[in-house]
Amino acid sequence: MVEIGYTLSSEEHGPTDLVEYAQRAEEAGFDFLSVSDHYHPWVSAQGHSPFVWSTLGGVATATESIDVGVGVSAPILRFHPAIYAQAAATAAAMFDDREFYAGVGTGENLNEHVLGDRWPAHAVRLEMLEEAIDVVRKLWTGREVSHYGEHYTVENAKLFTLPEEIPPICVSAYGERTARAAAAFGDGFWSVGPQEVVDVWEDEGGEGPRFCQLQACVADDEDEAVATAHETWPNSALPGELSTELATPSLFEQAVEMVSEDDIAGGSILTNPDPQAHIDSIQAAIDAGYDHVYTMQIGDDQAAMLDLYREDVLPSFS
Rank of each mutant, 00 (worst) to 15 (best):
L129A: 08
P234A: 03
E176Y: 03
P167G: 00
H40W: 14
S34C: 13
Y174Q: 13
F30M: 05
S146Q: 01
F32K: 01
E241L: 13
V154Q: 05
A285P: 02
T244F: 07
E257A: 15
Y294W: 15
E176W: 01
A25R: 06
A237E: 14
A288D: 03
N156A: 10
H122E: 11
R143P: 06
W119H: 07
G58D: 13
M296A: 12
V197P: 01
A60E: 10
W53N: 02
M128H: 06
H80W: 07
D187P: 03
M128F: 07
G5T: 08
I76P: 00
F30D: 00
H122N: 10
V198M: 04
A284T: 15
A74W: 00
Q302F: 13
G69V: 02
L162D: 04
T232N: 06
A265W: 09
P249K: 02
Y6G: 03
M305E: 09
I279W: 03
N235G: 11
T106Q: 05
L238C: 08
E253N: 05
R78G: 05
E130D: 12
A25D: 06
F160N: 09
D262F: 02
H113Y: 14
V154S: 07
M258S: 15
E20K: 12
V145P: 08
D31Y: 14
K138I: 10
P41F: 07
R180N: 10
D291A: 07
S172Q: 08
F95N: 01
P209Q: 11
T228W: 00
G71H: 15
P194H: 07
G266E: 14
F30S: 02
D203S: 13
I4Y: 06
T16D: 04
T271R: 00
E241Y: 13
L214S: 06
D300I: 11
E164M: 13
Q283K: 09
D221S: 05
I169G: 03
E164A: 14
S243G: 11
